[in-house]
Design a binder for these strands. Structure first.
Lengths: 344, 344
DNA sequence: AGCGCTCTTGCAATCGATTACATATTTTCT
DNA sequence: AGAAAATATGTAATCGATTGCAAGAGCGCT
């Protein structure tokens, strides 16, 4: 009933435990005949390696911690899927925790790396407290930490991100080509790197095209549906209304459109709206949402890949410290050419 | 730079490693004075326990595997949050894998329990292949497996679920009280336990109220948005249209409403629609969705709690083998009283 | 035959914590 | 005072796999 150990296999195969271990982890060094005997013995005994023992001996946890701001945000699910896919290929497991929870429990993040629970860490939260970031950066394990999606300006951790600036540029360009000249931007939360990056690129692109940009056309939000609703009220109240709104997230766009439709403002007839992220729901929304697509599966896989490279060979110099993944415009029905009626 | 071990602490505190270990895990048995000396030494050395070593010695992984059908489904996020919350309180970690991925990688589920990677397993997927279920049930570790949300009929694993039948009854009752007599049910995927349970309870409740139920009013679906869209087409095509539709999930309801609105059918004016689950989005949807609420955080916490009890004391008889959590009706704007126009 | 080489294999130490058992010390009770 | 009980601490085995080192076997070459 008890699971069998290397010793059991060794006994059955009539070899030493060393030989069994080698057969399993490095088959080339053992002879053909013992290899067969051992394989047979493994089958007979139903041997499964004991990971706790291996982890202790090899000083590896064979798992990676993924840290999210908030587990309940569907945006992260596909990224996790990508991470998990790559990790399990390499025999690694994925541990999940939320920054909030870790913080509340009084645990220090670095402990996960310190106490042999995880070999590395993928952080999807750029909003860590500065003292936490500093502590991580100073730790000897800092090389096994990687940021994905979000990042911390000034810190030197490797990261995976999408072309946020390019996304904002493409968005403006798309709306411009539809004839829009008065374009607003509904932003993410103050202090968030993505919010700043996207807003910054938006402002620059507007300027590059010589488009007027009234201060009130930068509407502060926070990526959430309800912020989108609030923004809709602000938009309605403007005397000089933009004819198109570029939202920093799909959720914002959905909230914005939902509130407008409650007030009988039609999208895209009365105003064009686009989002960012291209979450699953964007396609099903009414109207289907024009958005900037991020390949979240690829983000996850790339993050896992980069991190694992650094874990497996900590000493080699790793080329790129930031992978920037492409975004693309997905045109759907929430944006439309400017019509005369709107400009009146 | 190397992390310090029990030995280091023992040396500094001038006691044996045994004493240090006791001080940390069972402080009551050591004297006040050594306790202080050890605590001091722990602080000085910056000691962190090595979990791999402890896991090996105690034969515990101090982690639990959570198995989902699909990581990308936002429905599970809150449940995970609940599980993780409870686990981390007890110093346990949460490992995540998707059934599909495990299957594709050729790994056997039971291996996670066998090889000291996890002490227990919470399965959120009732659709496991029968041979997999059988294998799990036959394993000596079967007592450390628990199902949540979904379950497998006939298998004897403990489980956590919500009052699915009660939910269906409350739904019919709600629509009935609004005056509806012709009520359709849009189901989940064929073969899914939730689908069958909810449909079954729906049919019984309709019969109990002596309401007519045409076969075509049971519309097959699969919990997804797009199935909802298809169902809407079916509804439009009916000669004798139900005035209310009870959907087996919120996503179904949203897809259903979205497609109707494309065809200028108004909800709730022309037809009342309600969902099941009360996902975050239900409230933001247009119109805000009437639904049957499941407390997903509680489901997660309860599942973790029940499983941990069984892991910590495997020998005591555990009272309830199935926790059934309450559901509640959340009335919003997608359901309305029947009006004369609809009956024509 | 004897030497050196390669290829296999075994011995035994090791990773770092836990804990049964033994021992030393103090307290309690008659 | 002396025995018994209670308390505190140390000794050393143990969990199960990995791996440096040494040794044996087999081979070719001079």
């Amino acid at each position: 009933m008890k699971t069998s150990t290397l010793q059991d296999v060794a006994r059955v195969a009539k070899v030493s435990t060393a030989t069994v271990s080698r057969t399993l982890s490095n088959p080339d060094v053992v002879s053909e005949s013992t290899r067969r005997r051992v394989s047979e013995a493994v089958k007979v005994t139903g041997y499964r390696i004991n990971r706790a023992a291996r982890n202790l001996r090899t000083q590896r946890a064979h798992s990676v911690l993924v840290l999210l701001p908030n587990l309940a945000n569907p945006f992260f699910a596909t990224i996790l899927e990508g991470i998990s896919r790559h990790l399990s290929q390499l025999g690694y497991s994925m541990l999940i925790a939320s920054t909030k929870q870790v913080h509340d429990s009084g645990e220090r993040l670095i402990d996960y790396l310190d106490d042999a629970r995880a070999d590395g860490m993928i952080i999807l939260d750029g909003g860590l407290a500065p003292e936490v970031v500093e502590m991580l950066a100073a730790a000897p394990q800092a090389k096994r930490i990687l940021f994905a999606c979000e990042w911390v300006d000034g810190a030197s951790f490797p990261s995976v991100r999408c072309q946020n600036r390019q996304g904002a540029r493409v968005a403006v360009s798309h709306l411009y080509e539809l004839g829009h000249r008065k374009i607003a931007h509904l932003t993410g939360p103050e202090g968030n790197v993505l919010m700043h990056t996207r807003m910054d690129a938006f402002v620059l692109e507007m300027a590059a095209r010589d488009l007027e940009l009234k201060p009130e056309w930068i509407i502060p939000g926070d990526f959430s549906l309800s912020a989108g609703c609030h923004a809709a009220k602000a938009w309605v109240a403007m005397q000089d209304r933009p004819t198109a709104v570029f939202c920093a997230s799909d959720q914002l766009a959905m909230g914005f459109i939902a509130e407008l439709s409650r007030r009988d403002v039609k999208v895209p007839d009365d105003v064009s709206v686009m989002g960012f992220d291209d979450i699953e729901l964007a396609e099903q929304f009414i109207p289907p949402l024009t958005s900037i697509r991020q390949d979240r599966l690829l983000i996850g896989e790339t993050a896992a890949k980069m991190l694992m490279e650094r874990i497996v060979s900590p000493d080699v110099e790793h080329s790129s410290s930031a992978a920037v993944l492409p975004v693309s415009l997905v045109t759907r029905e929430s944006t439309a050419p400017l019509v005369a009626a709107q400009t009146e």
